[in-house]
């Protein structure tokens, strides 16, 4: 199944600040959707609203499955979220994390065995399955977070700046892993502050100060605006402001 997400006039006020100011977006089903923007653009707030952690102050979020409207409760079991900050237990091992999340998602034992073995092989963490999360390198840590999210074979994944603070080689491996996920028609919404990562997405949404600046395919957007990279666009808009 292919999950689509559309937001309409989303506003979210967090204490004195308006983190989202009328965000209207359409996330394409079964592809990698990027939410690109500098720090403080509202990316994390947007993802938290989409996963249901925060209630919007105003506006709506509509979900669809294979083109037909679906309620949040219907798609929630197939949703996976990877927060920006460290979200694993430093005193539990890689294997213990997988077991814990498999139990949370109520995976049958055979399915768990098959998926965990595949994920450990693909992420090359097989040798480290007894190592505690607190002793993993930055890249391995992020891979483990992604593995926990992928364990339930989600149809909608929300990843909040997953490559933040990760070395270039681990980042490349991480994106390769995401490529495998989208090959299975999983809708992925990924936020990042690394502008060059936008090129890896099928569709990007540029966000700044809680507002959508532009949406579209990366190559198309660059051609339309006559820019080489998205950093240039943000700098130009920042200068104009």
């Amino acid at each position: 199944m292919s999950v689509g997400v559309e937001t309409s006039g989303l506003r979210k006020r967090l204490k004195a600040n308006e983190a989202l100011s009328g965000v209207t977006l359409s996330f394409e089903p079964g592809v990698l959707n990027g939410v690109i923007g500098p720090d403080g653009a509202g990316k994390t707030t947007l993802l938290r609203v989409l996963i249901g952690l925060l209630a919007p102050t105003e506006g709506t979020v509509a979900y669809s499955v294979d083109g037909r409207p679906a309620g949040f409760d219907a798609i929630r079991p197939g949703m996976a979220y990877m927060p920006q900050q460290p979200s694993l237990y430093p005193d539990l091992s890689v294997r213990e994390h997988l077991e814990f999340f498999a139990d949370l998602y109520r995976l049958p034992a055979a399915v768990y065995r098959e998926r965990s073995e595949e994920l450990l092989r693909v992420t090359r963490l097989e040798r480290f399955q007894d190592r505690r999360a607190g002793r993993l390198s930055g890249g391995m840590y992020k891979k483990l977070g992604l593995m926990c999210a992928l364990l339930q074979s989600p149809s909608l994944m929300l990843l909040d700046e997953p490559t933040n603070g990760v070395d270039p080689i681990s980042r490349r491996e991480f994106w390769e892993l995401l490529g495998r996920v989208t090959a299975r028609k999983v809708t992925v919404i990924i936020s990042t502050a690394y502008m060059e990562e936008a090129d890896r997405c099928a569709r990007v949404h540029l966000l700044e100060a809680g507002k959508v600046l532009a949406s579209g395919a990366p190559a198309e957007l660059k051609r339309e605006r006559g820019i080489k990279g998205f950093a240039e666009l943000f700098l130009r808009l920042g200068g104009a402001a």
């Binding site: 249901g52 927060p83 979200s87 694993l88 949370l104």
Partner: peptide
């Protein structure tokens, strides 16, 4: 504090 709260509450539980 450890950031794991968000992972748990976002799980379908």
């Amino acid at each position: 504090e450890g950031g794991t709260f968000e992972t748990i509450v976002s799980a379908p539980l």
